[in-house]
Design a protein around this nucleic acid. Structure first.
Lengths: 181, 181
DNA sequence: AATGCCATGTAACCGGTTACATGATTTA
DNA sequence: TAAATCATGTAACCGGTTACATGGCATT
């Protein structure tokens, strides 16, 4: 149950319409909680029905017209409650690791190409995070908000760093393996 | 579409009944692809219907009776195909990072306790992985299967290491923050 | 008038989660 | 023989994914 809270966070940062939210998910919040526009519209409807957000201006007549939302006090309270409530970490679920485990049984033929491709993708993501870090968190700022958001970005950077290193290591292992074993 | 392939892998490693599979998922494969017994039974049914696995002994009459499955050649072929096929990595989706981002907006009151709890959980998981590493991968083995499975375990160890370090860092940041900001 | 983009949706599906049901076997 | 446990399931729900639909507005 995190998507509504992701939306509340985004709307508190800045009141927006559905499409604007979608674009912002593609950029920033989506880096650790992605969502499509269909999900977002569906959820905006629920949040409004629950009285956690409301449409901003003199209401426009639905279809094709832009609708902007803002968070109501009840929404802010719910977000504060949720962010402080205990939640267990979700167990890891990673298809690539599973594929390696499968390859240990049925043979490694063909999987190396995809490891290389994943390595490239993670390197690209890492570079993007680093650019954001340089742009948004230059040395010598330390507001509480900045520090927390930087902390989150750091997690992203460190995770991508882990994956690139691990994939490099994996490819080295493969290079030493007997062919297709 | 990874659960059937997780099951095929597990069954190739050792033919099993549904409950035995469930227990093995709780231990080893489930470390990176978890599944409940309901999922597993549902999927075993599909895999059998698709001709990828079959029940082992003279068929027992369903309910309450143990049924063991083994992988058919078509199942092994499908697993080899899947493990070699290109697959995009799934975008990160982590509720804790989202909660921190929310906390940057609505305040950090209460979240530190859960950060500490997560730190403990990750430390425990890390210790468990290290035990497995010592037990199953003593220095001086290097069959292809061993190396691949060790590689997968390494990913788990490094990921847990990342989380423990990041959480320690996060808690340090919080210690420096003005109260509840 | 036609094309394309902006913006908001609907509908069907699919895999994972949760709660519950039922039969068989072992143990007190 | 009652209770606990082993073992296999059914059913309802929920969130994410994919494909498609519809209306408004700007440009050519």
């Amino acid at each position: 149950m995190s998507l509504p809270h992701a939306i509340l966070t985004a709307l508190l940062e800045k009141s927006s319409s559905g499409l604007e939210l979608t674009r912002r998910f593609d950029r920033s919040i989506g880096y650790f909680w992605s969502a499509t526009h269909q999900q977002i519209y569906r959820e905006l409807g629920k949040l409004e029905a629950d009285g956690l957000i409301r449409t901003l201006p003199a209401e426009q007549p639905a279809r094709g017209q832009k609708k902007s939302y803002e968070v109501l006090p009840a929404g802010r309270a719910e977000l504060a409650r949720w962010s402080a409530a205990a939640q267990d970490p979700k167990p890891l679920r990673d298809a690539l690791l599973l594929r390696l485990r499968a390859a240990a049984v049925v043979g490694t033929a063909g999987i190396q190409d995809d490891l290389r491709r994943h390595l490239e993708l993670h390197e690209r993501q890492l570079a993007e995070y680093r650019e954001i870090e340089e742009r948004d968190f230059p040395p010598g700022r330390d507001g509480a908000q900045d520090r927390l958001r930087h902390l989150v970005l750091r997690a992203g950077i460190d995770l991508e760093t882990f994956w690139t290193r691990w994939l490099e290591h994996a490819l080295e292992e493969f290079a030493e393996l007997p062919d297709g074993a």
